[in-house]
């Protein structure tokens, strides 16, 4: 039996013709208005990048066949070094665990990517669409590390946390996958249900530096 029959996959994104509005986890916060009315300068900048496609791939990192197939589908090698990531074109692949990677693509490409994985890969692996359950917070600015230090116990010093590093960790009383994307730029992957709590948290923790919301 081929994988496409043994596993149910579904294009979860409605056709554009259906005219269905998609709402990111912070939709209710109306960041566009906040951005318009709020601070224009400040030590911390915040932006939600919602509605992306997020796929979790699980497979044995020692299985060269699977790893090779994944690389062919993604167009980049899976990062096998713990806590590393690769970014190519619009695709980000993050190491989450020795047998787990979190892949981010534009949401309308996730079904296509899923389909290609299922066609290309066989054997023991899993691929799960988690797009509805995650959102990305981009945080940056000269005080971004100061804000993050209030929020997470991991060491964010450049020497310990270089650009490209990824950690899954505690963030406030919730969790986040943190990736450094620049000297003063980080990306936080957070769960939908915790999104509002973490947004409130970041506003509070950034207040002393001035928070600039972008949309």
């Amino acid at each position: 039996m081929s994988d496409t029959n043994s596993v149910a996959i579904m294009n979860q994104v409605p056709d554009a013709a259906a005219g269905v509005r998609a709402e990111s986890p912070l939709h209710h916060a109306d960041l566009a208005t906040v951005a318009h009315k709020g601070n224009k300068i400040g030590g911390v900048h915040f932006r939600e990048v919602g509605l992306m496609g997020h796929l979790t791939l699980r497979c044995d990192p020692n299985n060269a066949e699977l790893i090779g197939a994944a690389a062919r589908v993604l167009g980049v090698e899976l990062p096998l070094t713990p806590l590393s990531s690769v970014e190519s074109g619009g695709t980000i692949v993050r190491w989450i665990a020795p047998d787990e990677w979190l892949i981010t693509v534009p949401n309308d490409q996730s079904f296509d990517l899923e389909t290609r994985f299922r066609a290309e890969m066989s054997g023991h692996y899993s691929l799960v669409n988690g797009s509805g359950g995650l959102t990305i917070y981009q945080v940056s600015g000269e005080n971004v590390v100061d804000m993050l230090k209030k929020s997470t116990p991991v060491d964010l010093h450049d020497s310990e946390f270089p650009v490209g590093k990824v950690v899954s960790t505690v963030f406030a009383k919730s969790g986040a996958v943190i990736r450094r994307t620049g000297a003063n730029e980080f990306e936080l992957l957070v769960r939908r249900s915790f999104a509002d709590y973490l947004w409130l948290w970041i506003q509070s923790a950034s207040a002393e530096f001035g928070l600039v919301v972008e949309a």
Binding site: V13, G19, E23
Partner: peptide, 28 residues
């Protein structure tokens, strides 16, 4: 118009359908 998985299961004893859609479209 939204792709869904619909489960005909019941916790009320009534005719029930549990509609699951990607959360980005849930409120719609």
């Amino acid at each position: 118009g939204v792709p869904a998985r619909v489960f005909r299961i019941s916790f009320t004893g009534e005719l029930s359908f549990e509609i699951n859609v990607q959360a980005n479209f849930g409120l719609q």
